[in-house]
């Protein structure tokens, strides 16, 4: 039995490794044709709606500017992302756009690209190593905006619960930091519980159900660090008949959340401009390639979305 298990493991490792090799070799098939500008793009995860939106916009803008794109999915693995950037370097692409998986672990990708004299643009999130340009939004600000809304709604007094994303991810750390900055300004606003919902709607719903058991109607507001979790919290509160008494705010402004704001079940969401991030990334790439001057850092502001200004954000 033990030997069979070992063989299983061996086959598994082989399968995994050949799998990796295949994915990198297939990227090489995207050859640079003629003088067309070639841009390599590696995205954090194409299973994330927001990231897909950024990527779609990059693609759209690239088509308009007649740029050849090689887009790959790092599937949340910084290691994979570095390999992808190495492959871009080997293919001698003109510019690299990277949506980093991690602050530290994706840094070597930036260093390697710059060492090979290929400009690299970070989009949406940062790395420790400084890239040629950064385009994104400051997540701390989104946390501030969300918690500020809660503070104003509750007139500075009440009990708040907070749902984290994956613990330790840049977005989670920064959104929490922003929220806590505001909490400090309102001593009567109490954070009675905080816990991870792993960015996931079903997990967040269970978590909210458990909190309702624990704290019942003493909860006055929920801050969820993304809309998926916000929607889960709304569902649990609605099922428990408590939604009318609890303020729920989340971040991202995904279509579902906008619908919920329209219906009045979600009180507010914070809009992060995926289109702007994608478009600016390609624009900067063009400028760099043509040797024009460009902004080293482009910060696209977050916007609070409530029933009052909803129309602007609905497509």
């Amino acid at each position: 039995m033990k030997r069979i298990n070992f063989i299983h493991l061996l086959i598994l490792t082989t399968v995994l490794f050949t799998g990796c090799n295949q994915s990198t070799s297939s990227e090489k098939s995207g050859e640079s044709g003629g003088k067309k500008l070639v841009v390599g793009v590696t995205m954090l995860s194409m299973q994330n709606e927001f990231i897909v939106n950024v990527s779609d916009e990059i693609e759209k803008k690239a088509r308009e500017s007649d740029i050849e794109l090689i887009t790959v999915d790092a599937e949340r693995s910084a290691l994979k992302q570095i390999e992808q950037v190495e492959s871009f370097i080997a293919q001698k692409v003109d510019v690299i756009i990277m949506n980093p998986c991690e602050v530290e672990a994706s840094s070597p990708a930036v260093t390697k690209a710059l060492a090979a004299n290929i400009p690299i643009i970070n989009v949406n999130s940062e790395t420790t190593a400084k890239p040629s340009a950064f385009i994104g939004s400051d997540d701390v600000e989104s946390g501030r905006i969300a918690m500020k809304f809660i503070a104003e709604k509750l007139k500075g007094k009440g009990n708040v619960v907070m749902m984290h994303g994956y613990m330790g991810q840049a977005a989670q750390i920064k959104r929490e930091q922003g929220a806590r900055e505001i909490l400090k300004q309102y001593p009567n606003l109490k954070l009675i519980a905080h816990q991870t919902g792993e960015w996931d709607r079903a997990k967040a719903m269970s978590l909210m159900e458990n909190w309702i058991q624990s704290y019942g109607n003493t909860i006055n507001a929920v801050f969820a660090q993304n809309d998926e979790m916000g929607m889960g919290a709304v569902k649990a509160l609605t099922d428990a008949g408590l939604k009318d008494n609890v303020v729920v705010v989340s971040i991202d402004a995904i279509p579902d959340a906008l619908q919920a704001v329209k219906k009045g079940t979600l009180d507010a969401t914070v809009f992060q401009n995926a289109e702007q991030q994608g478009a600016q990334a390609i624009e900067t790439a063009l400028k760099i390639a043509k040797g024009q001057t460009y902004e080293k850092e482009t910060l696209i502001p977050f916007q609070l979305v409530t029933k009052d200004n909803l129309a602007k954000f609905m497509k």
Binding site: H164, M167, A193, Q195, T196, S206, L207, N210, W211, Q213, S214
Partner: peptide
């Protein structure tokens, strides 16, 4: 277990 740890508000790291 998962429900109980939430009720006790055990931090995510420890959960």
């Amino acid at each position: 277990i998962s429900n109980g740890l939430d009720l006790m508000n055990v931090t995510s790291y420890y959960q």
